[in-house]
């Protein structure tokens, strides 16, 4: 119940800023889809594995949108909650537990991920890029991807006091993952070391699952394995974030 109250707080704030986020979290992936899927896709003559290039990158773009929205919401807003606006301290002064504060923040992150991904999925459907009845499952998968990357990021944001490290995090984590974890081209064409790095990234597991759902093809690796790997990120991320929140809020 406490988490819901915290979530409600975040939603009230969102009422004032949602217009800006519609542009960045929905329109930009859409433009990326047009530029790469349609534009570049026209030059990828044979598609990938018999699938047109546009249809092939759509699930990757949905997963990477989930990644970007989740990371965006898990960085500056969390740092601000401790450092600038100090929202968390006012919440913990009310009869809320650390779990409620963290849970409410995570809930809001996931809601943002869900809304952006759902909108994207609808556009992809309009482009005829979905080939399977499993496609709606993508919405559950993005929640898993969102939690897997958001929780460790929340833990990180709760550990720092200056935002200069956040810009760095985007450059060393978000951009390389987006570019090399199988969104734009198959990871199999990467040299071995980079390929293994891609396998380690949570995004690749998410992309492969989403692709399997929208195209109706078998994933490149065991679906159960993918789900378990992401679940490990969620579980460890939660423990880390909870410990960090506890130290910051109660010590």
């Amino acid at each position: 119940m406490g988490s819901l109250a915290v979530l409600e707080y975040h939603l009230v704030g969102y009422r004032r800023t949602w217009r800006g986020s519609v542009f960045s979290s929905f329109l930009l992936p859409l433009l990326t889809m047009l530029s790469f899927g349609v534009g570049v896709g026209a030059y990828v003559d044979s598609g990938i594995g018999g699938v047109p290039y546009l249809d092939w990158i759509v699930p990757g773009l949905i997963a990477s949108t989930a990644l970007q929205v989740a990371m965006g919401e898990a960085t500056w807003p969390v740092l601000s909650g401790f450092q600038w606006v100090k929202t968390y301290f006012s919440q913990i002064a009310a009869p809320l537990r650390v779990v409620d504060v963290l849970g409410g923040q995570l809930g809001f992150v996931l809601l943002r991920v869900l809304v952006s991904s759902a909108a994207f999925l609808a556009v992809a459907a309009a482009f005829g890029a979905l080939h399977s009845a499993w496609a709606p499952v993508t919405l559950l998968l993005v929640l898993l991807i969102g939690a897997a990357v958001a929780l460790p990021t929340i833990a990180f944001s709760a550990s720092i006091t200056s935002d200069s490290y956040l810009a760095l995090l985007f450059r060393v984590a978000v951009i390389p993952m987006t570019l090399f974890a199988g969104v734009f081209f198959p990871v199999e064409s990467l040299p071995p070391v980079l390929r293994w790095l891609a396998y380690l990234s949570p995004l690749w597991h998410g992309v492969d699952l989403c692709r399997s759902a929208t195209l109706g093809v078998a994933p490149a690796w065991s679906a159960t394995g993918h789900l378990l790997y992401l679940a490990v990120w969620v579980a460890l991320g939660w423990l880390l974030a909870h410990a960090r929140f506890r130290r910051r809020l109660l010590d």
Binding site: V40, A167, R171, V172, I175, P176, L179, F180, F185
Partner: peptide, 22 residues
Amino acid sequence: ISGFLEPVLYLFSIGVGVGALI
């Protein structure tokens, strides 16, 4: 330094990675 790396990463991903498909 990380700002310098960004276009290099794009070059390898899109230029080389996607380029192999084109």
